[in-house]
Design a protein around this nucleic acid. Structure first.
Lengths: 224, 224
DNA sequence: CGGGTTCCTGACAACTTCCTGACGCGTCCG
DNA sequence: CGGACGCGTCAGGAAGTTGTCAGGAACCCG
């Protein structure tokens, strides 16, 4: 049985979600604001989080960032406005998907199932191989053609974030917040620099990257 | 069996629609004005709503807004006046499609089937396929015949908005505000440009689009 | 304290994307 | 029949991004 944490400040929404989710066999824990959400997430380790962006105490994006700092739990965002700006911000901060209110219950349940099925993209402890590179996540070790390559801490952190989401586009802001922490969303120059170093150390032809690709204006993508 | 709510102030239209719909296996509930419509919608939770804009008590757009505040039920608008302004307003308020009176019964039934199909099975989780195109919303990736197609940020935003509302007629102002943000409601030239680029990249014959169709004066519609 | 490593900042050229305006074509309506 | 309107298309310049380099500050460790 999977556990879901529902965070919303409107009690009727929490109640309605709880009823439907329990009817489908989920175990449900709830929170009414951001502070409570963080506490409950720590205490009960949910498998997935449903988070309303419009909370009374904390900014929704803030909550996402702090959840991300602790675990890789999938986050589904409920967005009140159909305005796209806050959705983009949420995704950048680390949310995995979003649904705009008003939403159909079936749609939400379907998305939750998908997220759960896809959760933990790459487990810690696994090793990822691509080209002539082998990344051992458990041992914190990288080898190219069998010989070890030394990475600085920042390089390693960046590589880890990318490798844990194979094939997925990661926006600059998301990479920055995950590697450097909240507050560095604008240090683009930094990201460019370390991406270049990763490519220099891991790509066969750093000028023509195959595994660490950039999509102009959108972000970077790791391709195994 | 699916349930449809028919809202119209002319009894003969309600009766005629009821007969045809029941003959096709629909369960039908009715309302004669806006207030009743809202009450019946709450009480019987229809799968789709057919709504005449010219109601005696409430403005049609008002009814749509209030329905939308409660659920994501698809709304098909019946417009009596050939004036197109109110139709656009209805779409902006959240209607999914419209039919102009006098209408053919076959056309209305066909539209209803489309709306129902889009709402029940839900988008297939995080990937949408149509023709030879596959849109992976989670990975932010588009492929045609298996080979990747690169989209610019604006192209991707536009595609995402369209794809998340399959079969639905999206007004130009809505597309503009969702993709470019509030304040760009009049930048129609922009929308035409990027719609053309999407078609060039995704349609088999960009000059004769099948999946990204335009309805003159209204907006654009994505058909899977 | 010194040597080596790591991290950050600022600059530049090459590139991509975005916007604007103009033109042609078809439809609709007077 | 002519004009207005909306739509699709094209091209050019403005604006923003990215890869890259070099230099200096901060850090760690012996």
């Amino acid at each position: 049985m999977s556990k879901v944490l529902v965070v919303d400040d409107e009690p009727q929404i929490v109640r309605a979600l709880g009823i439907h989710l329990r009817a489908r066999g989920w175990e449900v824990v709830t929170a009414g604001d951001g502070t409570e959400a963080l506490a409950v997430a720590d205490a009960s380790a949910p498998d997935v989080v449903v988070l309303d962006l419009g909370l009374p105490d904390l900014d929704g994006v803030d909550v996402i960032t702090r959840l991300r700092a602790r675990s890789a739990v999938p986050i589904l965002v409920l967005s009140g406005r159909s305005d796209s700006a806050d959705k983009v911000d949420a995704l950048d901060a680390g949310a995995d998907d979003y649904v705009t209110k008003p939403f159909g219950m079936d749609e939400l349940l379907a998305r939750l199932r998908v997220m759960l099925r896809r959760s933990t993209p790459v487990e810690a402890g696994d090793a990822v191989e691509f080209g002539r590179v082998r990344v051992d996540l458990a041992a914190t070790r990288v080898t190219v053609d069998g010989s070890e390559v030394r990475l600085t801490p920042t390089e390693w952190h960046l590589l880890e974030v990318l490798v844990r989401h194979p094939g997925r586009l990661m926006s600059q802001s998301r990479l920055l917040t995950e590697v450097w922490g909240p507050g560095y969303e604008t240090a683009h120059g930094n990201l460019r620099l370390y991406m270049a170093q990763l490519r220099r150390k891991l790509e066969a032809d750093p000028a023509r990257p195959v595994h660490f690709r950039n999509e102009p204006g959108m972000g970077y993508r790791f391709e195994p």
